[in-house]
């Protein structure tokens, strides 16, 4: 059955997290400070969002002195890219069942 990857969808369901992830994908590794300046919300808020992304496996953090540098894990996007394929398979099978039901309604 269609088990979508909740974490990835839920994490990216938030526009701020999507923005953070997008910046990291497009511009490479960045510190919380750099991301905070860019996105225009408080540093604790940025850290909290990065924590959610990290839990979903979408970013990784690397400690260097007082700073944590974050990097996007692009391969974690696979469930998002696969969702149409998975749902496609789901609907194919459900439409087979619908066809079967319609046949029985004829009798």
């Amino acid at each position: 059955m269609v088990q979508l990857h909740d974490d990835v969808f839920r994490s990216l369901g938030d526009p701020t997290r999507r923005g953070l992830f997008e910046f990291l994908c497009l511009d490479g590794e960045q510190t919380v400070t750099a991301l905070t300046e860019r996105i225009g919300i408080s540093q604790p808020a940025v850290s909290k969002h990065l924590g959610v992304l990290k839990q979903a496996g979408l970013v990784t953090g690397r400690q260097e002195g007082r700073h944590t540098h974050y990097t996007a894990r692009k391969e974690a996007l696979a469930p998002l890219i696969d969702w149409t394929q998975r749902m496609g398979g789901f609907w194919d099978s459900k439409l087979d069942d619908l066809e079967n039901l319609l046949g029985r309604m004829d009798q």
Partner: peptide, 25 residues
Amino acid sequence: ELAYRGATTGWTRFLDRLEVVVCDH
């Protein structure tokens, strides 16, 4: 339709940009 502080974070735009990310990957 959600414009977040002028950032480019709508899903539509995000998925378009994802094309770059996917190709990159």
